[in-house]
Nucleic acid binder design. Sequence first.
DNA 1: TAGATTGTTAATCGATTAACAATC
DNA 2: TAGATTGTTAATCGATTAACAATC
Lengths: 213, 213
Amino acid sequence: MSKGNNISMSVIRRLPRYYRFLSELDGQNVERISSNKLAEIMHITASQVRQDLNCFGGFGQQGYGYGVKALKDEITNILGLNLNHPAVLIGFGNLGKAVASHMNFNGLGFDLKGIFDKDINVIGSKVGNIIVNCDIDLESFIEQNNIDSAFLCIPKQAVKETVARLYNAGIRTFWNFSHFDITGTYEDAIVENVHLSDSLMTLCYRMNEKINK
Amino acid sequence: MSKGNNISMSVIRRLPRYYRFLSELDGQNVERISSNKLAEIMHITASQVRQDLNCFGGFGQQGYGYGVKALKDEITNILGLNLNHPAVLIGFGNLGKAVASHMNFNGLGFDLKGIFDKDINVIGSKVGNIIVNCDIDLESFIEQNNIDSAFLCIPKQAVKETVARLYNAGIRTFWNFSHFDITGTYEDAIVENVHLSDSLMTLCYRMNEKINK
DNA sequence: TAGATTGTTAATCGATTAACAATC
DNA sequence: TAGATTGTTAATCGATTAACAATC
C-alpha cells in the first residue's frame, strides 16, 4: 500500500468491482491486461482505471500493461480481504439466515464467529458449524472471541438498543441492513448500510421515468 | 411531477432517504418542516435539500417551509411507489426466501406475483399466499400476469441463461443480486444491482484504513 | 530502436454549497 | 409589516476525462 491515504469514497467503492473483474480474468488465466482493455470490459474509461490504481501505487509497466495476478493480489491487500476480522451476526430471521449462509465471509475480510437471536425457537439452529446463541450471552462472547464487527439483521425497532450494547462492548464496525441511522448516534462508528428498500424504490423510479418518456 | 426531466442519479438515489425521513416525521404527526431542520436530522445541507426538491417542483412556501404530509405524498408519486408493478422472483434459496418474505413490496412500487425455482424440493413452498412454481412455467406466467420486472436471487452460473429467458419474455427491469453484468449484454434493460459482497469489501477497506492511521 | 502503454498533469464536467433576492 | 424561509443563481469543490511526456 505505497500511497493509499485520503482516497475518496468514489474510488473505494470501485475497488471491489476491479477485484471481481481481475479475479474473473485470473480464473481465465489471462496474464496481462492494459488499462484500455480492462476499461472496455468494465464499461468505464481507461483514464479512470489508471487514476484509480495510481491512488495506491504504480502497479503497471509502460508498454506492457498490468499483470493480472499481481494486480489482483495488490487489490486484495488494499481491501484487506485476508485479514478475516472476527464478526457476529445479530438476528436469525429470514434475512439473517440468508446472509449467514449465502455469504462467503472468508475471502471478504471477515470471519463469522457467532450468531445471536433472542427467539427461543431459533436458538440452537446451525449454519455450517456455527450455532445460534442466546442474545444474553452477546457481551461475553464478544470479549472472549475478540469480535470487532457486527452484522445487523434485526428488525428496525430492535436496532437502537442492540447497537448500544454492541458499541458498549467495543464494536465500532457495523454492516447494517436496517434503517436505523447509526452514524447519527455514534460518530466514530464505521457503518456500511444495505438499504434494500431504497434500492427497490430507485428501481421503481427509473422504471416510471422510462415509461414517462 | 411538474419538472422532473433529466434528474441526475445522485439526486434520484437520495429520494428514498427523503421518503423515509418524511414518513418518520409524518408518523410523529409533524406538520411542517424547514429545509434547515430536515437537513439537520438527515445530516446533509439545507442547500442540498432545496436543490433536490426543486428538481421536481416548488413544494415549499417561503417563510413557512414544507408541509410534511404533502411533501411525502409528492415523493411517493415521484418515485411511483403506488404503481405496484407485477413482478416475479427467481430463485428460492436462502436469499430468495429472505427477499420474498422480508420485503414489503406493495408500498415500494411492486407487487410480487410469482416465485420460481427449478429445485423440486422447494417447488410448492409458500410465502404468504404465493406458491413457488416450477421454472418451466416462467414464460407463460409472465404473459398471463403482465409481469414487467424480475428479482434475481439465483446463483451466478444460472443468471446468464435466466436473464436471456426473461428478456425474451419482454422483461426489461431487473433487481439483481448476482454479479452477472446485465447491462453489458442488454443495453435497454433497467438494472438495479445489490452487490452484498462489494458492500462487505468496502466495509473491510474502511476498517483497515482506520487501523492504519 | 519503435511501438505500446503507463503515470501524471491539465482541462472539463458535474455536483455541492453559499448567497441572496423574492415572497409568503 | 417584519421575520422566516424558500427558489434560484453564482461560486466552489471534487470527480472524471483528455492529453502527453516518460519509459518499458
